[in-house]
Amino acid sequence: MSLRDHIDALAADNEVGGVLNIDREKAVALAVFLIPGLSLFAIFSVGPIVYSAVGSFYAWDTFTMEEFVGLDNWIRSLRDPLIVHWSNIQEFRYPMGALTHNLLWVVIHVPASTFLGLGLALLFADLKGRRILRSMVFAGFTVPPIVIGLVLMFIYDPQAGIFNEVLRVLGQEQWVRNWTQSPQVAIYALIAGGIWVHTGFSMLLYSSALSAIDPSLIESAKVDGAGAWRRFWDIIWPLVKPVTAVVVIMGIIWVMRMFDIVYAAGGAAGGPNHAYSVLGIEVYRAAFRPEIDYGMAMVVALIQLFIVAPLALYIARMN
């Protein structure tokens, strides 16, 4: 990367003694800088991932690895109705399995929070006090997700919840219910809450992309007689389009990692009869709640990674 390093590499074969000194000095420096951080990273992040990848092919006696069983854990997990519940999917009845629920989050939550984020970013872009407005929308993203989950329970409470009060005021009494505990609708109520929290993040990314646009571009379009709609499609959208990929992928990553909000609303079961369980919940239950099934926990966590990893690498490649 640096020229100096090219030289160091070239000079490695050189017989000049001083160069060797530099090399040794550099090797020591590299070790001093890298080893403390990388060893903790290796022990507590990379190691456990490798452990899970290997462990997913072994039988487990609670926390102890037993014999190699090939794809047994994988097949068993993918057939488990807690992960994918085929018969319920055909009838479109919850629970449909954690993986299905996660994908439903992706399909509804990600587009909604992306559009809302772009909309709010555009709405706030040229207003006075936009920093305060943005912070009000973004604040939810800094709140512990477990609190978000509890707040959602509070909002959707049949008596104390403001959402049901709004329904009553609108004369929709028949809809009043304990939303987070009603199996067939609860997941939509939670997704709405997810959108509420996550839109602030999408808006933040879009806002920073918008503020990077040279104002003279927009002014010159105005001079050329382009209306607001034309200005958006011809100038603003092409310039913020690359950010959309980041917003969408970050949204998918966030949704695939969903745990705290679901746990707060539905506990370790993921709602009544697992009605809105997600993959994270299933990992936790398989690994740390009886009956402990370490093999399945590892498989499910790896499925989470497989869905997200290509997207993250795509972002990295993009830059």
Binding site: F44, P48, I49, S52, F63, R257, L279, Q304, L305, A312
Partner: peptide
């Protein structure tokens, strides 16, 4: 990059045993 993409659940089992 891989770790950044991984869900926290993925490292829980290994770290629990460790």
């Amino acid at each position: 990059l891989l770790v950044m993409a991984a869900p926290p659940e993925l490292v829980a089992m290994g770290n629990y045993n460790a």
